[in-house]
Design a protein around this nucleic acid. Structure first.
Lengths: 109, 109
DNA sequence: GCTAATTATTCCTTGACAGACATATTCCAT
DNA sequence: ATGGAATATGTCTGTCAAGGAATAATTAGC
């Protein structure tokens, strides 16, 4: 799992942009209007999101339409696989760790 | 979906800590050793992760054992639901947007 | 109670990033 | 080609967070 994905989402306005694009592709101006951001900020945030691979752009007329890219979300999904058993299985491994600790202490004598 | 979760994971060492704790609970010293971090940094990162609700601590003897908390991961999982159809369905809604744009231009005349 | 081990906190410095504003760039329409 | 709309980039400033080192706090064992 790549840190840049989380880093890109770790900003309120950028997370809002992602949520907004979840409904479908949208040009810069409309994103700025809906989120009440000024245009340069919006472009800069989109730049970060684009560099992180979360969105891609497609020019149409004199507009640039941004849309989500599935890949990072898929990666996040498979990354979560490692953690699913944490809540599917009921127990945590705390007692297992305590036993391991106990063994180490016994070895020290 | 909360930004603080992403913010906490948007740092390489913290992400490493999370991955490490995926194998089971662990005290501060062991985390620091395995990741080759010094102890204060480790404690500080754990503090951030704890404030974000990603980990919780449980004192055992003179050690403090940290372990993952399922909730934020579950939230992330359900948050991803909104994006699953993006890659399960094949098409993006770009053409839909273009039709909408076309309509608006027609209205302007 | 005292010492050592374990962990948390504080202070300081430095680097990165967001916001505001101005400006540049690109592209369509006429 | 020219004006205008849409978008991108540059610059500056303030803020916040990470790293390093020193120190404080907690706890176990004697």
């Amino acid at each position: 799992m790549n840190v840049t994905t989380f880093s890109a989402l770790a900003e309120p306005n950028r997370l809002d942009i992602i949520q907004l694009l979840c409904d479908g592709p949208m040009p810069v101006g409309e994103i700025a209007d809906r989120l009440e951001l000024n245009q340069p900020q919006t472009s800069k945030h989109l730049r970060v999101l684009s560099d992180a691979g979360l969105v891609e752009v497609q020019p149409v007329a004199n507009k640039r339409i941004y849309k989500l890219r599935p890949q990072p979300f898929q990666e996040m999904d498979s990354w979560l696989d490692s953690y699913r058993r944490m809540w599917e299985e009921r127990f945590d491994n705390l007692d297992a760790y305590l036993r391991k600790l106990q063994q180490q202490q016994n070895q020290d004598r």
